[in-house]
Design a protein around this nucleic acid. Structure first.
Lengths: 218, 218
DNA sequence: AAGTTTGGGTAGTCATACTATCCAAAGTCA
DNA sequence: TGACTTTGGATAGTATGACTACCCAAACTT
């Protein structure tokens, strides 16, 4: 497969592919002479991964580079695998604003999860998120946090598929990363749908603006 | 309060405040002569809102403008309020990639929620997210989606607070927007913490790299 | 009166993510 | 064989977004 075919099948332009090559997001094709190289399915798959991370996950090119480097050297042990995925997908922190966590937030994380979880990438992300909540003048009480924890635990039960345990490391890691990036928006959208349901029930109205006969124009 | 004081109390520089003024993110102060204007608590609060939306929510300036305009003209009815908040917080869609939804995705949304939900902002977001999942070569089966739906419904129960029903519209809308922006990252982090718990239990290891063979505790 | 601050405006900067051009060697088709 | 196309490799340019710098004259402060 030549670069033009790679461009055709992935829908990504040749200059952009060259850019990805330069930036180390895409491994080089097999050189066949000075002006020819051939690409295969692994390149198609990689390009699709990059596009998913960029378009859906809104990861920066730099972050995508971290992800693909992690894929090239996946951790040997199974328990490190999720940590690596979570590390790669850590949320964006705006430059200038410190990504610090308050001791209080860290303590809440410690109280919540299994022992040691406050040192895992996920635990750190939680602590940062809780710190941001407090900094934003908001608050989440312990009962609410517990409810949320249980809810997300039931989500996590469906996430950790057998594939994660049996597939070869690189594949399992890609599975975890792609699955998380693609389904995070689904969960957030389901939250909003749920809010509309609850609101309709509590406030006695339809979820959006119009009546039960649902014409829904606005 | 002069602009320099507003800058001091919010930690945002004067040029940036002027920029926000120009862009319509911040309402003008009360003019007191040609070269003086006074700002008050509403300005402080607005600046903090903008920073939260930008730093935590990663909203573009343009999107923030939409949010503040919505705040300036909050919908009269209570059920439109959540819709307005969800509309303002709709996820970023990359330019060039169509934000379309497939009929299949829309059908799944219709099957899931209350009648009419597929036309609400949240329902549309869900359909888009499901479409992106399929486009990314992933799949979410109906059982999983149902589990997630129930989980997020229990989250939503805690979200729709009495404050939303009793506070004046503008305040209720800000409450909904800020609350959602600040707590979305908490939920996603909890999901990851949950994944590490489940993985540790299933694969028989600690959640990350260290520690004793711990805990199916929770 | 000297110096500082403000509003208002224009213009410049910086980072990110691409695009565009150029070149010479290599392949392709007539 | 020779015109045409494609490629790899390199350099430079563009578009956008979010600020940041500078300037000015009219207040205001001391």
């Amino acid at each position: 497969m030549r670069i033009s075919e790679l461009a055709d099948t992935t829908g990504v332009s040749i200059p952009t592919l060259k850019y990805y090559l330069r930036e180390g997001l895409l491994h080089a094709g097999v050189a066949q002479g000075a002006t020819r190289a051939s690409y295969d399915e692994t390149h198609v798959e990689r390009v699709r991964l990059v596009r998913t991370l960029v378009d859906v996950g809104r990861l920066s090119i730099e972050r995508v580079r971290e992800v693909v480097h992690a894929l090239d050297e996946p951790p040997a042990s199974r328990h490190e695998l999720l940590g690596a995925a979570h590390e790669a997908l850590r949320p964006h922190v705006t430059p200038g604003v410190p990504g610090d966590v308050t001791p209080e937030s860290l303590e809440r994380v410690r109280a919540l999860g299994p022992p040691g979880c406050e040192h895992s990438p996920a635990g750190l992300q939680l602590a940062q998120a809780l710190t941001a909540v407090a900094a934003g003048g908001w608050s989440v009480d312990d009962a609410t946090l517990d409810t949320w924890h249980r809810a997300m635990l039931s989500v996590a039960e469906t996430d950790v598929a057998p594939a994660l345990a049996t597939a070869p490391p690189e594949e399992a890691l890609r599975y975890a990363i792609v699955g998380t990036v693609l389904t995070d928006p689904v969960l957030l959208a389901l939250r909003r749908v749920g809010q509309e349901s609850v609101s309709a029930r509590r406030l006695g109205g339809p979820p959006t603006t119009t009546g039960p006969s649902a014409s829904t124009a606005h």
